[in-house]
Design a protein around this nucleic acid. Structure first.
Lengths: 180, 180
DNA sequence: ACAATTATTGAACGATTGATCAATAACTGA
DNA sequence: TCAGTTATTGATCAATCGTTCAATAATTGT
């Protein structure tokens, strides 16, 4: 997972995997049908971990909206961390996916993953409405969509390593839509 | 440019270029030092055209803010167009760039390109302030940054081909930050 | 402890990668 | 028109790509 994450699908050769994992190609093909299925397994693992990470962030605040604030704080930490692997595997895959032959199955699965993340935010927003933290007339689904567009934008924006204050101002503007 | 755009750097082989351009490899290497420089030339061309396209959109409205609305309208048209090449070459490159060996020169140039686009929006926002369309206390630089995060997010979000109405609601929420 | 199953190994497969080069064709200015 | 420059051609380079396989080693259940 980490190797695909770092180098992308196309630039991750079996040889690179073999070297870094200290596993011979034959072992990889013994465990997985081919490179694509090995990648899909890595993507599934990434999805599970990211879902867990989002849940944890959303629950770490004193309230639903505070949880969302926490999430964005964590996101900026990740983006700003020099040593971390750049970007998000799901986003990188979505970009790389447009290339080459369109992989229908992978496209669909990736769409499901994205929507699952969006639903996590939607639930938090519904909870915020229930507790009176978020105005009743707001549309949780539309807001969740808006926030996730922001997440993807921030991740891409962070690729060129801007100062953290710039990203923080973007987050403030994003979250301002929740209030009022 | 179009071929790199469609397939990405890694998946665009010299042979593919040779086939689709009906030019033999030798001809390509006669005109360009290597694959990377050929790609950089393609990227420069894309940047020039995109800058022109943005300028045109921003000037097509009755006012600066209307110009920005026009831009987002065009953006949604592009994203929704099935026949169009998916995504944005600059964004795709930024994503692919994180992979493999970090290309310092390319990273810097790409950063300049993104900032140039951001400045185009900033100018429009300054003009909007001058004409009283945008509140004086707003920060044009911060707003431009926010809008471009939105653009990248929308482009990525559009990769999975959502209904246009969903994207339109995101654009409305983005633009709502300009008013009030 | 031993037979049966599973993993690992190292070598190799054909195909494709980016890149080169002498030979040939096409164009150029005077 | 013809010498001089530029472009195109087709073949080929070593390196790497994803993948396979028989042979060997390690692990398992009984």
């Amino acid at each position: 997972m980490r190797i695909f994450w770092r180098y992308g699908y196309a630039s991750t050769s079996i040889q690179r995997l073999s070297d870094q994992l200290a596993l011979h190609p034959g072992s990889l093909y013994g465990a997985f049908k081919n490179k694509r299925q090995l990648f899909m397994a890595a993507l599934e693992l990434y999805f599970e971990r990211s879902s867990q990470s989002i849940r944890q962030a959303l629950e770490s605040g004193d309230s639903p909206l505070q949880g969302i604030r926490c999430f964005f704080g964590q996101l900026l930490d990740q983006i700003g961390d020099e040593s971390s692997i750049k970007g998000c595997l799901m986003i990188n895959t979505a970009t790389e996916l447009a290339e080459e032959a369109e992989d229908e199955a992978l496209t669909r699965r990736l769409d499901e993953m994205f929507r699952s993340h969006e639903r996590q935010f939607q639930h938090a927003l519904v909870a915020a409405q229930a507790s009176g933290e978020l105005a009743k007339e707001k549309d949780p689904a539309a807001l969740a969509r808006f926030l996730l567009v922001g997440v993807r934008g921030l991740r891409l924006y962070g690729q060129t390593r801007p100062p953290r204050t710039e990203l923080e101002s973007v987050v403030e503007q994003l979250l301002s839509v929740l209030y009022r």
